[in-house]
């Protein structure tokens, strides 16, 4: 198999297989959650939970108070650096938008590539710092399961191979691009079966927490 045949496979059958597994897996996960059902709430509602639910989706992204932020400054900075970097790289790079447009039928403006490049570096450094902390902090290390390392690698690889392809590092570009797409397919396939699902479920649980608290008339 030469680089062109490899690239052809990952852009065609590979991507389609990954997308099917991803959509089916994620829909099963989400529908199972939505169809769980809740016990009927017999208490009188103190307020409408909808606005509280919506608010909580956003407020949980900001640090609760200065003290806890100061105590976990490292996680805060590295966590945000990684997540913002990843978001920019996935959704604001021209080739990625072009792919999304071919899938959904609409797109949006991109950022210049050197800017996306900077965010890639931020995300890569943050991820490495977070891994270093996971390995050196005794409590975090004790709490880590093999899945945590698997998911870390699955997220790190697309960023690294994307960075390497853009800068033509060490290997022919055609191979690097193929490996980059393959690593994304690996990530997509792992997505529904690991804690990566938090990218979706996070907002559901925030909404639910906020809504429940709102209906009871307390702050969430």
């Amino acid at each position: 198999m030469n680089s062109a045949e490899f690239l052809l496979w990952v852009r065609g059958p590979g991507l389609n297989i990954a997308l099917v597994i991803f959509t089916i897996g994620m829909l099963i996960r989400l529908l199972e959650i939505f169809m769980l059902g809740r016990k009927q709430n017999l208490a009188e509602l103190r307020a409408n939970g909808v606005s509280a639910g919506l608010r909580t989706i956003f407020t949980r992204s900001t640090p609760a108070d200065k003290n806890s932020m100061r105590r976990s400054m490292f996680t805060f900075v590295a966590g945000y650096g990684f997540h913002i970097g990843l978001f920019v790289v996935i959704f604001l790079l021209t080739p990625h938008i072009q792919l999304i447009q071919s899938l959904l039928g609409f797109g949006w403006p991109a950022l210049p590539t050197p800017v996306v490049d900077l965010f890639t570096v931020i995300a890569l450094i943050s991820l490495m710092a977070l891994l270093w902390r996971r390995l050196t902090h005794p409590v975090v290390r004790y709490l880590s399961t093999p899945q945590d390392y698997l998911v870390w690698a699955a997220t790190f690889l697309p960023l690294l191979t994307g960075y390497m392809s853009y800068h033509h590092l060490w290997f022919p570009y055609s191979w690097l691009l193929g490996v980059h797409i393959l690593s994304v397919e690996f990530l997509l396939i792992l997505f529904p079966f690991t804690k990566l699902t938090h990218a979706f479920t996070l907002f559901i649980s925030r909404w639910y927490t906020g809504m429940m608290a709102g209906e009871k008339g307390v702050a969430s």
Binding site: L8, R11, L19, V20, F22, P95, L103
Partner: peptide
């Protein structure tokens, strides 16, 4: 574009 799939990705997504 080079970054698009060589197959019909929207149809695959619809099936999924």
């Amino acid at each position: 574009a080079l970054s698009e799939s060589t197959m019909n990705l929207s149809r695959t997504a619809a099936v999924g």
